[in-house]
Nucleic acid binder design. Structure first.
Lengths: 110, 110
DNA sequence: ACGGGACTTCGCAAATTTGCTAAGCTATAA
DNA sequence: TTATAGCTTAGCAAATTTGCGAAGTCCCGT
């Protein structure tokens, strides 16, 4: 899974970005999103009690691909692939655009 | 926006797929997801009072690309692009894998 | 020490998405 | 009618992602 970037990104965000460079928001939000997705796939798979190879077979790809998807640094997530994974695990993908900054709206994280 | 596929897909789902062909679940869920995404982008943009061209500029692309993203039949959504759009509108992308079938869990559709 | 399983990483070719320009289409305003 | 705004569609090159095999690591069980 190669987790580590998250905490780093957090520091960077607080220290360098938020005060004066909102343009770079994008790349950061991107990094977060990617990481979140990677982690969700990982969680989904392990909770289902599957190995990467097993899930790969269900999805119709190989284990190295699953590994790549679970890498927090991977930036190539597509709806197509996410949906394939979801379908294999009897789920569906739901995406939402949630406001950052000006709205403390509660996060629905289960 | 070219809406129309949704109701069709609904019919198809009920009549042909659900009874006997769970393998094709994937492509259907896919279709739904794509449509949902397209619609969300459209809603986001119009609620922000922007034209495709305006949003395109903010995102760093052209209006034809935005149009394509808002097409319910488009299947090429990527996290990268969704995140760029979100960032331009001061939002972030959140994805979730939600159970289908065995869990009547309420849908959080705003 | 020797497998074997689980996972990661590498390297490409093949497939897919993006960027852009040009050309349509429809509706509205002058 | 002519012009313009807003949106869609087509077509292609460029960039990116996917598929997949091979190789490498790490860890456990024998």
């Amino acid at each position: 899974m190669k987790k580590k970037t998250t905490s780093d990104a957090l520091k960077i965000m607080d220290q360098r970005y938020f005060d004066g460079k909102p343009e770079r928001q994008a790349e950061l939000e991107q990094a977060f999103a990617e990481d979140a997705v990677a982690r969700k796939i990982y969680t989904l798979r392990t909770k289902a009690g599957l190995t990467q190879k097993q899930l790969a077979k269900m999805v119709g790809t190989t284990d190295s691909v699953i590994s790549r998807l679970e890498d927090a640094d991977y930036e190539g997530h597509s709806m197509a692939m996410l949906t394939r994974i979801a379908a294999a695990l009897d789920k569906r993908v739901e995406i939402r655009f949630v406001p950052i900054r000006h709205t403390p709206q509660p996060v629905h994280e289960h």
